[in-house]
Design a protein around this nucleic acid. Structure first.
Lengths: 231, 231
DNA sequence: AGCTTGAAAATTGTCGACATTGTACTTGAA
DNA sequence: TTCAAGTACAATGTCGACAATTTTCAAGCT
């Protein structure tokens, strides 16, 4: 699973801890809403509580845990409302990112994006049995969005999407485990073609439509799940 | 100056430190790019380095300082490029916030917004000598945007704007000290009227236009400043 | 003079112990 | 039996000291 985005080398102990805990949360070992016990985890990972607290602080930045003074930290909770909120934010921010990418993306980045779309298309049509939705399509969708974000030439927008939002996206995606619809694929193709034409206005429109549609698909998918499994 | 947004009571020492340092950075006591010396500040505020480090961590969340492993923290730097990036992000996020506010804002919130606009209009037309641009108009603009954000009914969008972006906005605004143009006021009126009509589409369009225009005004204003005062 | 090397000083990272706050349980009375 | 208060326990907040790394600066060489 694509955990190694923007995490170069763990220099310090707190950094290493942060990455391991992040992985544990995104991978489901630490369930949503679980209390994070400082003494327990410090013991488990053989580090001091100070370093652990710094790691928790970083997790708070990614919105993967929430802390209350004198009470402690918990893994972020799962809620349909929050998921819908995230889609709204992505619609706005990634729409802008697509517009900027159309204007600023390098030709190399564009070529990479096209190869992603192409590769994904063949993977879907050939119905490779090993290309399960949880492995291939999954990361393919993420990679598509990451590639565009990377081309937007706005460092702060990139950082906000990467560290403030996309860990939450992964958090929900792992738990919802959505089938990657073929409709989403064709939406990707449309966006890519707008980017190839360097049409920022169109790219923003199509990206917003794509994310709104994804939100609707997720909502529809949620209705089919027994309510007791959610939240 | 409006520093007391979303800062209820300093429960813990680290919280208090965070607020004081935040104020120091936004108020200009700690200049952009200044190295943050842990021993020095810990001594100055009579706290342990541990608490100070936690406060610095919180400042990092607000994007007011940047930290590098084994090197230390610095107050965020001033750069025209970054300011323009922030305007682009605000255009996307606050545009969405305006759309959502049109749909979800309570009548009380709407009334408050109207009173803000009205009060601001009279303050401008009467040319009250005490209503200097740095005190009244200043916070008036911030309050206007905050009021709309508060009405958008998307908690995460609110938090992202408040904690991740608006401290940076204050950071730049304090240093640029822009004259509040009458054009901006009329743009506010237009946005308010769209919100009164509960027209989300129009509210988003007008908000985006307003922020894009503000960005152009800021850029124009920057060109009139000797380059050595910037960065 | 300018550059490289090396040691000394300062700064950041890490740790364990103490203080303070929250929590759970027991005990007692209505 | 149920609720309240108090006590004991556990978790978080805070601190000072030690270890590892970076920076500084002075000596030596080309």
């Amino acid at each position: 699973m694509g955990f190694n985005h923007l995490t170069p080398e763990p220099i310090t102990i707190a950094d290493r801890l942060f990455q391991e805990l992040r992985r544990a949360i995104l991978g489901g070992e630490l369930p949503p809403g679980k209390k994070i016990s400082e003494p327990e985890l410090a013991n488990q990972y053989n580090v001091s509580r100070g370093s652990l607290r710094e790691a928790i602080s970083k997790l708070e930045n990614c919105n993967l845990v929430t802390r209350k003074p004198n009470i402690g930290a918990r893994v972020v909770g799962f809620s349909t409302k929050q998921l819908m909120e995230i889609y709204q934010i992505r619609e706005a921010m990634e729409g802008m990112a697509a517009r900027l990418a159309a204007e600023n993306m390098s030709n190399e980045q564009l070529a990479h994006l096209n190869s992603l779309v192409e590769h994904n298309k063949t993977a879907v049509t050939t119905q490779d049995p090993y290309a399960t939705p949880t492995s291939v399509h999954y990361d393919a969708d993420l990679d598509f969005h990451f590639c565009i974000i990377q081309g937007c030439n706005n460092e702060r927008l990139q950082r906000m999407l990467y560290v403030d939002l996309y860990d939450l996206v992964r958090f929900y995606r792992f738990r919802l485990n959505p089938r990657f619809s073929e409709q989403a694929l064709s939406e990707h193709e449309l966006i890519a073609s707008a980017l190839n034409n360097r049409d920022g206005e169109m790219a923003e429109l199509l990206m917003r439509h794509h994310i709104r549609a994804s939100r609707a698909r997720a909502q529809h998918h949620l209705l089919a799940i027994p309510p007791d499994e959610i939240e």
